[in-house]
Design a binder for these strands. Structure first.
Lengths: 271, 271
DNA sequence: CTTGACTCTCCCGCCGGGGGAGACTGGAGG
DNA sequence: CCTCCAGTCTCCCCCGGCGGGAGAGTCAAG
């Protein structure tokens, strides 16, 4: 009846939706103008459409996708609407949590001084040692659990031999466990020199790096060391070791310190 | 030297970056392979590139844009890197705050029961009243401040007349202030009936709606009422009023209640 | 030589519009 | 009646950071 038809510009100012957005919503079947002049294509809105426009504006302001706004405005059942909104709330919460995770991660990065790429690789001499050891065949999938049990076994053996650990436990990778393949790893715990019945571990010159964080983020540390070795023209000469400098039982995963050592041939400017 | 060139698939698994991503980073000049076969186009990476790849992965994990990662990895000054990271942290914080705002807004929406579109319009009779009033010429830009001062003036006048307010203050829009245009508004405070020297406000049948929230979000309420009037075939017959049901001095903006009344011709099924 | 697993380039899609080109049109003034 | 200007139209490209897939070429093992 009342043909107070409003052109798109004025309707845009009324609804605080951009002209582009209004045209887009028209194309998406979300908010069709009351009339479209077939000759000129001009869109004419009615004052009463401002309510729907406002609802759309509000829902877009909480980042509800266009399609879901269309669905939501389609049904009148307030309970269903509540359910849709709640579903979206969960999405927003998830996104919020993700953003928080990112922010915290970034703050950790900044705290570390932005040592993104080259947490210092150092060269050092590792003296020979007597170790209690067990060799296991594992894949990257089973390694965590197997290592836990293995160290338990070793500690038991040390105890029955009347000795005690004198340094941090470590692990020797005799095979490359690059991607899902199986391989041998040797679990070691140093014991007092000369304790009979245990293996003698030779000393070595190693390129070393300390990784801080959960075990499953250690791969980059390996790549950094191997990359460093290559770039500095050194030659690897033995299986790498991983030394557990603190205890996962008492320290948060973020604080875990793990040293990665790659034996290399001596020589070069070992500072 | 060491020509341990790694094809893209293996490097992808090593670095936990998708093949698509690696190709993209190559195209963006972010991580070029050590060698590209000119004949086949095959990309070959070197183990040492895993460190840079890892840095990229980490920085992408905190959603730093590609271009800025390139810049950041370009310069070695750790202080500058820290500054760039901090700048990004501020961006993340801003985004987080925005997400939180959305979530809180959505929760408010849900609490209200999802009355997005039709906060109930009611028809009612407004009795005549005696009011102390002042008429101002304002635009939408100046209205907030002008109304504040105007009500101060009126309260002063009421005091000197020995009367006192008996109902919520309101405002009559004699002109449409649709978009930046100037117009006359009348500020009114009801006083006891028959107080001499004040204006008599006629009664009316009105379509009414209550808006909850900040004043500057009130436009949609107007549109809902005018839309309702149009859809229900009623006829507007006078300037609209805005009644301030609670006090912006003592109530948070989100809790403000403002009633919008549009006089309409009597008749119809006034429930 | 064949086979199968990799890899290449190129193009489209996403999401919600923004920016701009080039062509029309509605209403007001003369 | 014409003119003029602001408003409007459609169409196309752009944003980010890849993912998906087509169609073709390539490497290594049997």
């Amino acid at each position: 009846m009342a043909d107070d038809l409003i052109p798109i510009g004025r309707f845009s100012r009324m609804s605080r939706l951009s002209i582009k957005a209004l045209r887009f919503y028209d194309a998406q079947g979300l908010l069709a103008p009351a009339r479209v002049d077939p000759a000129s294509g001009y869109r004419w809105y009615r004052r009463s459409q401002a309510a729907r426009a406002e609802a759309i504006r509000v829902l877009r302001a909480v980042d509800l996708p266009i399609g879901e706004i269309r669905d939501l405005l389609g049904d009148d059942d307030p309970e269903l609407i509540g359910k849709r909104l709640s579903a979206h709330r969960e999405r927003l919460r998830a996104r919020l949590a993700e953003q928080e995770r990112m922010l915290r991660f970034l703050e950790r990065l900044i705290d570390r001084g932005g040592n993104l790429m080259s947490p210092e690789v150092t060269v050092k001499e590792v003296p020979p040692a007597t170790v209690a050891s067990v060799t296991l065949r594992v894949s990257l999938v089973t390694i965590g659990e197997a290592v836990q049990r293995g160290f338990g076994t070793i500690i038991g053996a040390i105890g029955t031999a009347g000795a005690h650990p004198i340094a941090a436990p470590f692990l020797v990778y005799h095979d490359v466990l690059d991607e899902g393949a199986e391989g041998e790893v040797e679990l070691c715990i140093p014991v007092p020199a000369g304790t009979p019945g245990f293996r003698e571990m030779p000393g070595a010159t190693v390129a070393s790096i300390v990784h801080r964080g959960p075990y499953d983020e250690i791969a980059p540390a390996y790549h950094v060391v191997t990359g460093w070795i290559e770039e500095n023209g050194r030659k690897p000469c033995g299986p790498p070791r991983e030394i557990y400098l603190n205890d996962p039982q008492t320290v948060a995963p973020d604080e875990l310190l793990t040293e990665v050592q790659f034996p290399i041939e001596p020589g070069g400017d070992d500072r």
